[in-house]
Design a protein around this nucleic acid. Sequence first.
DNA 1: GTCTCGCACGAAAGAAACTTGCATCCGGAA
DNA 2: TTCCGGATGCAAGTTTCTTTCGTGCGAGAC
Lengths: 169, 169
Amino acid sequence: MARRPPTITLDSFDLGILAILQRDTTTPQRVIGEAVHLSAPAVQRRIRRMEEAGVIQAHVAVIDPALVGQSITIFVEVEVISETADLLDAAKRDFAAAPEVQQCYYVTGEADFVLVVVVPSMAAYESLTRRLFFNNPNVKRFRTFVAMDRVKVGLAVPLDEASGGSTVG
Amino acid sequence: MARRPPTITLDSFDLGILAILQRDTTTPQRVIGEAVHLSAPAVQRRIRRMEEAGVIQAHVAVIDPALVGQSITIFVEVEVISETADLLDAAKRDFAAAPEVQQCYYVTGEADFVLVVVVPSMAAYESLTRRLFFNNPNVKRFRTFVAMDRVKVGLAVPLDEASGGSTVG
DNA sequence: GTCTCGCACGAAAGAAACTTGCATCCGGAA
DNA sequence: TTCCGGATGCAAGTTTCTTTCGTGCGAGAC
């Protein structure tokens, strides 16, 4: 299941392709080819190679949460009591398993975890906090930040020239 | 540019389609149709309708930041001095304009903004803080959380039955 | 210097998917 | 009951994706 991705080198062609794909996957390979000065089959081969290397992790549709009834986005900083490997792994699994938890990062600093949570109502969030935090004896405290404005949302990675030419994987 | 999306109603077919698409856009409409018990053209028409309604905002490729040289993910809580509408808008524009800022939310609570930043190095982050925070007289203070583990990353929205049957848009 | 090998390319053919047109069916209103 | 709007499935048409094949370029061996 977790096969090691092969090591590959990304050139400026690959970066150009990635820049387009991380904005819009529906762009035809022919159009991408014109943009980066390559033929469609060449584009297709490079995309496949980057998929196999794990550079492209997935092709997904971005859904507006508000339009499917999930209108509240919340940030949560979680502080744990013990940072034992076992307990951390358990916490990671719990957080990651919750569908309401859109993103979860283990961080340094004044908090141990940062979560991005999407819920339909504050009642649902209250329920989630009970399930994930109050029921977890290893959670010391957590702080809630309710999003009033999703100023910028995405997973786009900055693709500057520094990324090119280097071997990764 | 900002046309109002038409109001539509999502049923369980639409939710089933969305659930698949927000995991993998490459799934053929024929396969989606089999999964939700609909023909391929019906699936295609529903997808188009949801795109036009703004429910589906984009089709994007997810890129592994580490494999394109952007190996550091950082959370930043930003506190501003004045919450004047003008100053807030200015801050939003500045933050959103930076390619390193992957996500930016305006929030309630002890902070005013929460950012997700992706950079190739701590030096780059230091440079970014100077540009975005120290140079901005309205930024009171900011706190940094460096991600050690991206436990869960994505934009997937929980699609429970509660979302169905309701008119949105 | 020359040869050979490996790798990536472009062009073209073939396969698959997407898109559209059309007749039908279902449910609500007159 | 009748009519009408909306959504469906099938089938044809179009575009895109995928594969195959021959060519060209550069690195390394001789």
